[in-house]
Design a protein around this nucleic acid. Structure first.
Lengths: 292, 292
DNA sequence: AGAAAAATGAATCCTATACTTCACTAAATG
DNA sequence: CATTTAGTGAAGTATAGGATTCATTTTTCT
């Protein structure tokens, strides 16, 4: 770290007050990124002038330059107060991991990060509201096109196992009118829509909302257009607007959906168990191998 | 994160330029900690004035307040831009994990474990062989039923973006004979099959193998019946025989498939880029919202 | 299409704060 | 102890950059 080096280099030749400043700086470099020279002076117990002189003493052109430098180091280089840096180790292990040029590992580790970010960005109350509405719904209607179709299909399938009243809208075979007619205040509509947001799904969401259905949006960023029509929206993956690739978000999307289904299944265990029982009945020998 | 929340809350009501600023902010929050309003305006491509108006729109008293807030968040709370230093998030999510017993977090963290196990169980040479065969294939045929259908559909969709010669077998509409006839030594057949293994997919795999196609199996355990017919098999998720629920494996399945697709896409970049270009051509305005 | 409203940026004004000056204090030296 | 010299901070100045204003452009609505 550049600043630390400069301090230890020049420390000896400093006056008493300046040494005080130097010590404070070593302990609380972040303060220089946030506060003004006068504020720091007050904290250290010296005047603003002395703070500025400290900058000169280290060879900077003034407080402004030192402050800029500190900000750059902390914010861009990720340098931070030594106290709270147990995370550094994580990084180095991560780097080592990344080096071994296993390509698939890199990609999949990014999925892991995405899932972690998704977890941290879920609002618990929204999640519970969604679970409750799904559990109470008379019917669950799901729409997703293109990349999102797989997700919509999976979610329908999974919710049918645990609840039994889910349907995917299939533009090729389903009649839009019939699909829409089913929606009322007891319905839940789930829209899966990612960048290059399909108008059709958005329109369905709008209709669903007009008809009083509870609308859940699964999407990529918190600023997706679906938020306009959705009662709750869950943004999966990196919160940045930079939606590099929708494909990259599927792991976290499915992880989230799995959590949603799991939560629904335990929120009404009776229904779940009876559905599973029915399901096992249907597992006719002819369709499956016994697995041995 | 406070700033992100504010943005997603207010985003809809913003003007075009302000949305541009909002997106930039999501991608580069650090810039607000370092640069002046004018500089940020230049980067975004709007005037200094608009940057300041953006602050008002979010409810701040001005640029200064927003900047202070961003600095506080980045420097004190350790919040950082997602692009660089993924590790910070790791820590913060880790903290969140340790906290209250959020149900969804538990489920999704299990997905993370599954992905990690999957990574460690992939044989690199097998992976590279699969990538190579897919890249060279004259056509790619994919089958998956029930829970696996979503995966098969997604994989087809994704491979069609990067290669353009993939098809899913759909029992309802496709003719089995026609589907089978296409297979020869230059084909790749991908079977997605999980516990309660569908006989149909297994039979397709058997036929594919007989016709000389390269067969890739995506399944749950290394002792899945698909191994009998597959040239390479990838077992996703916990290696234990205890396949509690197939649903729980989808996150790692999609993570793996994503890695596979990514590897294929970089193994022949020219083809990928031309496909993407074609694809963008097709993104007609009528079908998508512009996202702004 | 034309009027009204909203959005935007160039130019201006204004405030916070970095920086300078200078008078005062404390240490160093003979 | 007297004199010099270095150190320090209060007060004042300069300026970077945030906030305001207003004319121009773009959008919306009838």
């Amino acid at each position: 770290m550049k600043l630390r080096d400069r301090i230890s280099e020049k420390y000896m030749g400093l006056t008493k007050s300046l040494k005080k400043v130097a010590e404070y700086t070593l302990n609380n470099p972040q303060d220089f990124a946030i506060h003004s020279a006068a504020e720091i002076g007050e904290r250290v117990g010296v005047s603003e002038t002395t703070i500025i002189r400290f900058c000169y003493a280290l060879g900077y052109s003034g407080f402004s330059e030192l402050q800029k430098e500190v900000r750059r180091q902390i914010i861009l280089d990720g340098e931070v107060n030594p106290n709270q840096s147990s995370l550094k180790q994580y990084q180095s292990s991560k780097e080592g991991m990344a080096n071994r040029s296993k390509f698939y590992a890199k990609v999949m580790e990014r999925d892991i990060i995405n899932i972690q970010q998704t977890i941290s960005r879920i609002k618990e109350d929204q999640f519970q509201l969604a679970v409750q509405k799904i559990t109470e719904a008379s019917d669950i209607l799901i729409s997703g096109y293109r990349t999102s179709f797989a997700a919509a299909h999976w979610l329908t399938f999974a919710l049918n196992i645990v609840r039994g009243n889910a349907r995917t809208y299939r533009p090729a075979t389903d009649d839009l009118i019939l699909f829409v007619e089913k929606m009322d205040a007891r319905s839940v509509f789930i829209a899966v829509t990612f960048h290059r947001y399909m108008k059709d799904t958005l329109q369905l969401a709008q209709i669903a909302k007009e008809r009083g259905a509870f609308v859940i949006g699964l999407t990529d960023t918190s600023i997706s257009p679906i938020t306009r029509y959705a009662d709750v929206t869950f943004a999966v993956g990196h919160g940045s607007g930079d939606n590099a690739s929708t494909l990259d978000l599927s792991a976290s999307l499915f992880s989230f959906m799995n959590a949603l289904v799991a939560a629904v299944s335990i929120s009404d265990p009776d229904c779940f168990h009876s559905r599973v029982a029915q399901y096992d009945q249907l597992n006719l020998k002819d369709f499956f191998t016994s697995g041995d």
